[in-house]
Design a protein around this nucleic acid. Structure first.
Lengths: 245, 245
DNA sequence: GGATGTGAAGCGGTTCACAGCC
DNA sequence: GGCTGTGAACCGCTTCACATCC
């Protein structure tokens, strides 16, 4: 039975767990900081602490890339930087197009983290004629009509969507049709894309709502059990005992 | 032994899984869209599709809040909106302070998603004297010296850190000392906070790097196994079998 | 001795598949 | 008949604990 035997192929390539991939950039950043401080070697304990994870996780993560440490010693910072960079694909340049040059798009265009490590802003595009021609972070804003043109000539493979929500899906369809296979979406909508295209979402409002949930619990909201003894009025919560007692 | 018996208390309150909490805002947004279109009732299948998840997951998520659906029918949109809002703590107002009014802080201050649902910008702060006094998104920028003041008088419980990396930890320490227990961090650093304070991180550069990793695999990078036998050029996508087929 | 690398156990989350109810 | 709600199986990630190697 088990009709999804072939599911394993989903974790493609070398099979680095997605959770590990998501942490590699954090390790890389910590390593760069160590490098700047002139540190040549680092233990899993130290690096883990700098990255905000525990050392077992760090070691397991790194073990997926290969055996780049030395037992009894630690990891050579420079070597590890190179290996992680290579694994993440940062040893080559990636051309990025930013679509939507409102406040957010502008912030992105000026963000140092883009230019610094392997990412090149190959185009800023907007539908607003008033913005077209303006120079932002050293690049001239072009009209959205030229989207396909910019993607093709700039060999753009990553599109950053920073448009209003209502425009995002249309823009997404266009960049995908033009050959882009990775999208970073800042618009508060669920984008639908064909198989093979990766979308990552950054959503400020969602993050805030998650924080609000936890904050509410701390403060005695509907999910909070701390007050279950007494009987304040309001949205009469349905009580469920939790072992926390 | 097992010295982490009390770890269970970490998943506090009613015990809604963290993964579920992270999806509730997405459902909420989809429900609002349905509401605007005048839809009164929705099935798990429809709502799931609008939210970009599968229906089993959606049903299990909602079941953690209670039995708010009707078998054979679906969920009443308005009722579900209320229940999720209440669970997330959006039926009350949350005061937010934004620290750092560069491009990003400005984008955040002007972001509609803040004001719209339960979040009120109670303060914009910056260390740059040139910015202090300026009006942004209808609010006057105040000097960072007044941070504690603003937090106390505005009853701020959520701080958004949009400062340069080097300033973030110091700002974080100050907002925590002033009583803030939820932090949304946009600065590319790992913040350390005392027990009981929640930090969520939004990191553009990390998202891009994750995309680059996958992009590289598609294109035949070091993690790519597809070409190990032969060598066709081009972005010959790595095929992923999906049971739907 | 000391730190890495890794089987094995543990845990949370996802998916299946169907019982339960309208 | 149709759709929700949910136990059970499954899966991947985390953590432990220690064998392994410098």
């Amino acid at each position: 039975m088990t009709p999804r035997q072939n599911r394993n192929r989903d974790r493609a390539g070398r099979g680095i767990p997605e959770a590990t991939v998501a942490r590699l950039p954090v390790y890389l950043r910590a390593l760069h900081a160590l490098q700047e401080r002139g540190v040549a070697t680092v233990s899993s304990e130290e690096l883990a602490s700098a990255a905000g994870v525990n050392s077992a996780k760090l070691r397991k993560d790194l073990s997926h890339l290969g055996s780049y440490g030395t037992r009894g010693v630690g990891y050579e910072v420079e070597y590890l930087v190179y290996q992680i960079s290579r694994e993440l694909g940062l040893t080559q340049d990636w051309a990025v197009a930013i679509i939507g040059v409102g406040n957010l798009g502008r912030a992105l265009a000026g963000y140092g983290g883009f230019a610094s490590r392997g990412f090149r802003v190959a185009g800023l595009l907007d539908a607003d004629e008033a913005l077209v021609g303006q120079e932002i972070a050293g690049r001239t804003v072009r009209h959205i009509d030229r989207l396909e043109d910019v993607i093709a000539s700039g060999r753009v493979s990553i599109a950053v969507i920073a448009t209003p929500a209502h425009a995002a899906q249309k823009v997404c369809d266009r960049v995908v049709a033009a050959g882009v296979t990775s999208v970073l979406n800042f618009a508060p909508v669920v984008l639908s894309v064909p198989e093979g295209v990766d979308v990552r979402k950054v959503d400020l409002s969602i993050e805030l709502q998650i924080l609000a949930f936890h904050e509410q619990r701390k403060a005695g909201g509907p999910g909070d059990r701390r007050l279950s003894g007494e009987g304040p009025p309001g949205p009469a919560q349905y009580v469920e005992t939790v072992e926390a007692g």
